[in-house]
């Protein structure tokens, strides 16, 4: 049975249909990549899955439960963690305080400190626990974001363009981290970097103009002509 199931999800913005009747099923343990050209509706779709945007129509089911009307923080309690496209940390707080905020719903009391240390160690930010988050380098802020997602010990981790702005070496480390995380959680990855997508995803969903254009394995998507056309000649998608 799929962990996340989306049926006919639709969203209009002042007459413009940003997402148009999308169906999506993600199995437990899967790493799913969501790709598509700019303006394809990826972020809107994920916003509706995470509960940050109210859908105009359709249904979202998480772990067999209809969550279409649940607010974002209730979905979080069910085991959904979401990192935003723009870096979403509290820049004025320390690294450890940021992770504490993310973890406090799941664990309480003395265990909380241990959970924070563990999540920071996972992404390699342990030595920077007491730094003010806003002073971190950009790549480290993205890692902090992932640590904040991890600290919630989510069943579904949604990462919105996590490699954006990262250096080559940082991307390699990120790939290792995601492979490691995929052992214990389901991941939905919105990503522009095709090399990362091809390396990590079990399955890929391609969106264009608010609809699902294609869905399949990395090899299948790579060979798909419609996908190549959507990326204006296909050069980008094949890279």
């Amino acid at each position: 049975m799929s962990l996340l199931s989306v049926r006919g999800l639709t969203r209009d913005f002042d007459g413009l249909r940003a997402v148009d009747g999308v169906d999506l099923d993600i199995a437990e343990g899967e790493v799913r990549a969501l790709i598509g050209p700019n303006g394809a509706g990826k972020t809107t779709l994920v916003g509706m899955i995470a509960g940050r945007i109210a859908p105009s129509g359709g249904r979202v089911t998480f772990d067999g439960r209809d969550i279409t009307r649940l607010p974002a923080h209730r979905r979080m309690r069910l085991g959904m963690a979401y990192t935003f496209q723009i870096t979403s940390i509290f820049p004025g707080l320390t690294v450890a305080e940021n992770v504490t905020l993310a973890a406090r719903r799941r664990v309480r009391g003395a265990v909380l400190g241990a959970a924070v240390t563990e999540a920071l160690a996972r992404v390699g930010l342990g030595p920077r626990a007491d730094q003010v988050a806003g002073d971190l380098a950009y790549g480290h802020q993205r890692l902090l974001e992932i640590a904040m997602g991890l600290a919630q010990r989510p069943r579904l981790l949604i990462l919105d363009e996590p490699t954006q702005g990262l250096a080559e070496g940082e991307i390699a480390a990120f790939e290792t981290l995601i492979r490691d995380l995929a052992q214990e959680t389901t991941i939905l990855l919105i990503e522009h970097n095709m090399a990362v997508v091809m390396a990590l995803a079990h399955r890929i969903t391609v969106m264009a103009q608010g609809r699902v254009l294609a869905e399949g394995t990395p090899a299948g998507i790579h060979a798909n002509r419609a996908v190549q056309a959507a990326y204006l000649g296909g050069g980008d998608a094949a890279d």
Binding site: H73, M76, S88, F90, P91, L101, R104, R105
Partner: peptide, 23 residues
Amino acid sequence: TRAGLVMRATQADREMATAFGVP
């Protein structure tokens, strides 16, 4: 304290605090 941390987080960014389950 943790309550103080939650208050500072709310002060810094109400929307993000909501996203992290702060009531």
